[in-house]
Structures are given as structure tokens and as C-alpha cells.
Design a protein around this nucleic acid. Structure first.
Lengths: 94, 94
DNA sequence: CTCTAGGGCTAGGGTTAA
DNA sequence: TTTAACCCTAGCCCTAGA
């Protein structure tokens, strides 16, 4: 029955999310949760959860910065799309 | 900017799509967008877009109809493959 | 190669719970 | 009431198969 309340985000999860965004860029939620570097911290999260959390984090930073119990205050994601990325999915023309 | 991510369908586009399906039958997406009768209204759409939109419209009607701006409520496409007499069976049983 | 069918994904609005 | 967390769905992309 009520095995479904709310699952609050922990600082570890938030950090994993931010680190994932820094690596893949924002919007690559499935990429992040499947990365073995972040997956362990985000086992209980879906790509939708990541998207929603990021939306909340951005809203918070853009409004106020109480920096009281703030774990992460700077959410600036540099995200440098390295050209050395091995992810090449070009299909050879027939 | 990678362009606008979402391009909402207008009532004119939806009508053109439905009319196209009524004429060629569902699944003939390329046929529809190339028809001079519907092309003007579907200039910004691809055959894939038509397919996806039709999928959404079908799902919607089969579940609920609480749309505010309900432009098209009946998406039943009779589609009579006969090249002659357009047998329009508007009779809802009995 | 072209086209369609279907799965997968994200963005944004809406809803719920605290 | 406010709001973090969660849900729903329109629209797009990717790929396999015909």
C-alpha cells in the first residue's frame, strides 16, 4: 500500500548528478545513470528523477542563496565537449 | 541554439493530417505530405512527424477527452479502399 | 536507398505529499 | 500555503525490418 512516499535526495546523489552533468552535459540523463561512475549512487533514480531534480536545483539557485545547509551552490556546468570523444556512431554509407 | 525542441501541432495541421489519412489511409505518410492538397499545411512536418502525431492522437482518443481546445474529437478514419463510391459508414452500430 | 513501425528519450505542465 | 518529488504526455530521435 503506502510503500511509496517521497524519496528525498541525499547529498551523495546530488553530487553524483552534478558530476554526471559536468561529464555529459545537461539533458543526458540516461547517459548519466548508466555510467558505472555514477550508477552506484543513483540506483534508486530514474532518468526522469534526474531531470526533475536538476530542474529544482536550478530554480533554487536562480532564486535565493541561503547557503545554509547548501551542499551544492554552484551549478555552473562547464561541460567541455571534447572532440576526442570515442563515441562515434556514424554509419558507413552503403 | 539547436532550434526549438518542440514544435506544437496546430489545429490546421491536425486537420490536414486527418484529411490525408481519410484520403490515403493510415501509414501513407509520405503520400500525404507530398499531396498538393495537404503539403501547404504540413510544410514543417516530416513523414515521421505525421506518424508520431497520429500515434498520439489515437492514444488520446482511446483514453480520455478532456482537451480544452478540442479541434478534432472523432478520429475514426473510415478509409474505404474502394476507388469508387465513398461508403461512409457513420452508423455507430445498430 | 526510401519508408514505416515501434521503442526510447527529454521537456514541460500538472499533481501529490510533507 | 509552498515546494520537492513524482506523474503524464506531446514531440523527436534512433534503429530494425520491409
Amino acid at each position: 500500500m503506502l510503500g511509496h512516499r517521497k524519496n528525498k535526495w541525499t547529498p551523495e546523489e546530488e553530487e553524483a548528478l552534478v558530476a554526471g552533468i559536468a561529464k555529459y552535459g545537461p539533458g543526458k540523463w540516461s547517459n548519466i545513470i548508466e555510467d558505472p561512475e555514477f550508477a552506484p549512487q543513483l540506483l534508486e533514480r530514474t532518468n526522469i528523477n534526474l531531470k526533475d531534480k536538476w530542474r529544482n536545483m536550478k530554480t533554487r539557485v536562480g532564486s535565493m542563496e541561503k547557503s545554509r545547509t547548501q551542499t551544492i551552490k554552484s551549478v555552473s556546468v562547464s561541460f567541455t565537449p571534447a572532440k576526442t570523444s570515442p563515441s562515434n556512431k556514424s554509419s558507413p554509407s552503403s
